[in-house]
């Protein structure tokens, strides 16, 4: 209550203006240049290996896709962009892809039957199925 008059003043001004005050616009160009020259993408990622970061990315993507009702093959196909963001172009042959898928199924609340169904749809080798199972059981 003690700040009521100031609150009302600010609210009145806020209501009269249509401008942005509380949110930044996506980085302006000069800020982006400073950011990326000072700390390019390679410089801040020593806390975990690229493999762990990639598996976590796949885990989260798969969990979101499963919850949205996407099919296993559609989910696998949609991994290309996630993989690229983690420096992986050939995601089909990457063990971390399948570990991340297993962890994503766990995060999405799937049971063993769901995991088996998913593995049958996307794994091309028994090894890939085992990697999915490992991710489901052990996480990333």
């Amino acid at each position: 209550m003690k700040y009521l008059h100031r609150t009302l003043l600010a609210a009145a001004i806020a209501a009269s203006l249509g401008s942005s005050v509380a949110c930044e616009s996506f980085s302006d160009s000069s800020a982006s240049i400073s950011d990326i020259v000072s700390s390019p993408v390679t410089s801040l990622s020593r806390s975990s290996s690229p493999e762990i970061g990639y598996r976590e990315g796949v885990r989260d993507h798969v969990a979101a896709q499963v919850r949205s009702g996407a099919t296993p093959s559609a989910i696998l196909a949609s991994l290309a962009e996630t993989a690229k963001r983690h420096g992986v172009s050939d995601y089909e042959s990457n063990q971390s892809t399948y570990r991340g898928i297993g962890a994503g199924l766990k995060l999405a609340g799937q049971n063993q039957t769901g995991v088996d169904t998913f593995a049958a749809a996307v794994a091309r080798t028994p090894e890939q199925s085992r990697w999915i199972q490992r991710g489901f059981e052990q996480g990333v």
Partner: peptide
Amino acid sequence: TRSLHGRLALVVAITLAVPR
């Protein structure tokens, strides 16, 4: 410029309204 004016006016008002 108009946007900058508006944002500044609001920031000033709110900065005064909110205790440090």
